[in-house]
Nucleic acid binder design. Structure first.
Lengths: 129, 129
DNA sequence: CCTTGACCTGGAGTCAGCTCCAGCGTTTAC
DNA sequence: GTAAACGCTGGAGCTGACTCCAGGTCAAGG
């Protein structure tokens, strides 16, 4: 278990940002000690790192919230009832939409990287001559 | 030549956004008519579309400004003087830094896309059974 | 001429995502 | 038992990127 300062140095987010993400519903520290002191588990830290990756790929906090919602709610079940079916379908359409956007973004990113390389090459040649 | 409304529909940016980008120094419409009416050339529209691509790959307006600075300032020259050398070197280091960030971002993005696919597959299997 | 519609400007407002701060509660060290 | 160090909370403040608006200019149509 880690305190917020340790979690901060392990993940690279500031104390304030960790608290802010919690308020926004992205993280739930494993527990609270006396005086309400936050305590982060390894799983917590892992999740925060995964949030960092999602952020770095350009998702908004809302998108991240949608993205990480779930994961283990439906395991170990023989059958699903109607409610669960609907829930899963709505999650699937959200995920599918996100995936589309991410793939578009990747195309743009590839193009941008290629252009940056071209520019750099151009400058390099310019300097050599 | 296109007016701002045409430029807007051609590029997908709002009128206000186009004017805002101009104020931020990203675009210079080819000319102004009577009453200061903006007039965009094909080259302008092309550049705006390229800005759109840069935006979509996650660059800030400042980064975009750095990215598109230049391009034709040093063509057709036999030799470069000291000033120009320094300018090019500073541009190269900015571009190189951006390239690094972009490549990191692409790693994150690939990972995110892979995770999204995994999640979708998982849900799909869940629904089939 | 006068109205209508498209454009202009400067400035205010909005939203996301932090960041900072005052004031308060523990715990720890002297 | 008290001061320093750390954490907590609620709320204010800030930046980037728009978005909206009031008030003005100009061109064309009736």
């Amino acid at each position: 278990m880690y305190n917020i300062r340790e979690a901060s140095t392990m993940t690279g987010f500031s104390l304030d940002t960790l608290r802010y993400y919690e308020k926004m519903g992205l993280i739930q520290p494993a527990s609270r000690g006396t005086g309400g002191v936050r305590s982060y588990s390894d799983a917590n830290v892992h999740q925060i790192l995964s949030i960092k990756c999602l952020k770095q790929s350009g998702l908004s906090l809302e998108d991240i919230k949608d993205f990480i919602a779930d994961g283990q709610c439906f395991r170990n079940k023989e059958a699903l009832d109607d409610e669960e079916m609907k829930l899963i379908q709505s999650r699937m359409s959200i995920l599918a939409a996100q995936l589309d956007r991410l793939e578009e973004q990747r195309q743009a990113l590839d193009q941008t990287i290629a252009e940056a390389r071209t520019k750099l090459d151009y400058y390099e040649k310019l300097m050599q001559s």
